[in-house]
Amino acid sequence: MDNQDKPHVLSYSQLAGVLIILLALTGVTVGVSYVHMGFLNVPIALAIACLKVSFVLLFFMHLKYEGPVIVLSLIGTVSFLMIMIGFTFWDVAFR
């Protein structure tokens, strides 16, 4: 069952660790933006953003400790979002 009645408590040091990682990644993404790599810039910026978002989701939002209902449905939502963007491209990119 997905019943986890005892909530998991994150320690301050864990949270602080995540914060430091996030701040560092922000620094990296700003730094990289000054380097010109042509079309690679956007994918790199987005990859870093995804990494940051995963940290926020997993720790700040407790996703790592949630039951399957939330985890699976979040994956479903994100897939739907990707489909929204991806399938629109079937049109826009080939028009």
Partner: peptide, 11 residues
């Protein structure tokens, strides 16, 4: 986190 690179850091 997504808005920031998409608007401020594009290309």
């Amino acid at each position: 986190i997504f808005v920031f690179p998409l608007f401020y850091l594009v290309l």
